[in-house]
Amino acid sequence: MLASHRASDPRRGSGRRGAAARLAPAALAALAALAPAARADPPGRVVSMNLCTDQLAMLIADEGQLHSVSHVALDPRASAMADEAARHTINHGRAEEVYLMQPDLVVTSTLSARHSTAMLRRLGIPVITLAPANSLKDVHDRILEMGAALGQTDRARAIAAAFDEDLARLRATAAARPSAVLYYANGYTLGDQTLAGQILLAAGFSNAASAAGYKSGTRMPLEVLAMTVPDTVITSSRYPGASRAEDIMDHPVVQTLRRTTTAATIADHDWLCGTPHVLRAIEKLVHTRRALQGDGP
């Protein structure tokens, strides 16, 4: 488990980056001499406009290479790297402010506001979009894609390899898989074909929502949840202020199904994005499963 912390701890990450930065000039010079036509210089001023690309860029970019991240990356509920994000300039994903930052490259998700990215492209700014991760294999791929975009291929390869190694160590080989349902605000559930679904599987659970036919992300009526009778219901963590959408977590049906004392909650910052931080989510879930199965953590 230590290795996973090492991979996902932002401070350790920046420490390693510091070391890499010290080594970098010599290595880069050597690379440039060996393969002068291989690639242009890595982009020197990068702006990220999406929570997930923010975190990948912060993990992989060279010191000073990443100029700005989105304001969502500052929110510790959604972002696993809020402290790190605070050291960057903040943008709000609007074309105007991003253009004025004069970036060499903009990285964002394929899901983010299309009119903003279209506008930036029209203004002649290169934009690279990364698809959201829907599986743990996608996490590996996105790390490499971000590495290629930032011109930090070697560092990205090392992070991806560490991720694969830690994942292999964590991945459960449990014989008996307890069934669980991921239950979000508004009664949303996520099936096997989603990143959260894959986190659940990797931790040794079986997804009862998928078994009931909810393969991707859709609303699962409370009645259907009650009738599937999972071993546990893993609910999303609550945001401040009140909402009817989140009231569903207090419904007697959900409370009855969460009778186990180890009922887990989904900490958004580890679950939302395809970054090495998902390993933390898997690790916590493995503890939940062990407690549920009664053989201690």
């Binding site: 409370l222 202020g241 009140a242 909402s243 009817r244 009231d247 007697p252």
Partner: peptide, 25 residues
């Protein structure tokens, strides 16, 4: 103005009404 990300989408509920997922409470 609510800090809750779901609150704004509930304007529809307060204007149109719904009985989904209510309990004896």
């Amino acid at each position: 103005l609510s800090p809750n990300p779901f609150a704004a989408s509930e304007i529809v509920f307060w204007m149109m009404g719904s009985l989904a997922d209510r309990s004896l409470t």
